[in-house]
Computed example of a mutant assay.
Amino acid sequence: MAAFSWFTGFSNSVLQSSLTLNMPHCGHQEVDHFFCEVPALLKLSCADTKPIEAELFFFSVLILLIPVTLILISYGFIAQAVLKIRSAEGRQKAFGTCGSHMIVVSLFYGTAIYMYLQPPSSTSKDWGKMVSLFYGIITPMLNPLIYSLRNKDMKEAFKRLMPRIFFCKK
């Protein structure tokens, strides 16, 4: 499964990059974005980008919506199994574990889907920059925090730290 994911991602990147970089670019050659992504590069082209935008949309649907749909279906089955657990403590522990993962999945897929499955001119340039920064940098930075808050010692340390940060007395 990992090899298939790597192959699919690499193939998609090579295909999208080669199509985008072969487009004629005229005018300014400065990418007004944090990352050199295909949507940002398409804005530099002076040719019709509709076919490449349609292809980008199609592959984005495949690469983003199929995995998130499979994840949601599997979590539906997991939720059914967890609800059959007799003890409330066991259900709570299982839902806590699944909840952390669903937060991370929602942050990553939610922002990536928003970024790649929208018409290119529907939002401002700055909003696109913020969303790509969020899914490219902030979400991976939040992963350790989200998963470590499941640890009892980390929860206690976090509870002690928060009042010091927000209610600091001089």
Rank of each mutant, 00 (worst) to 15 (best):
A2G: 15
A2V: 15
F4V: 15
F4H: 13
F7P: 05
T8C: 15
T8Y: 15
F10M: 14
S11I: 06
L15T: 11
S17M: 06
L19G: 00
M23L: 11
H25K: 11
H28L: 11
Q29V: 03
Q29C: 05
E30H: 08
F34V: 03
F34S: 04
V38W: 07
L41K: 08
L41P: 01
L41G: 04
L42Y: 03
K43P: 09
L44Q: 05
K50G: 07
F57D: 05
F58A: 09
F58T: 07
F59L: 08
V61I: 11
V61H: 02
L62E: 05
L64G: 04
I66L: 07
P67A: 05
P67R: 10
V68P: 04
V68K: 05
T69V: 02
T69W: 04
S74A: 14
G76H: 12
I78A: 10
I78Q: 11
A79R: 14
A79C: 12
Q80E: 10
A81Q: 02
V82F: 15
L83Y: 08
R86M: 06
R86Q: 09
S87D: 03
S87W: 01
G90N: 04
Q92R: 05
F95M: 08
F95G: 01
F95I: 06
G96E: 02
S100P: 06
I103M: 02
V105I: 09
Y109F: 15
G110L: 02
A112M: 13
A112C: 14
Y114K: 10
P120C: 08
S121V: 11
S121W: 12
S122N: 08
T123K: 15
T123H: 13
S124T: 15
K125M: 09
M130T: 10
M130D: 12
M130S: 12
I138L: 07
T139I: 11
N143C: 10
N143H: 00
I146V: 07
Y147G: 00
Y147D: 00
D153R: 01
M162T: 00
M162D: 00
I165M: 11
I165W: 09
F167C: 05
K170S: 05
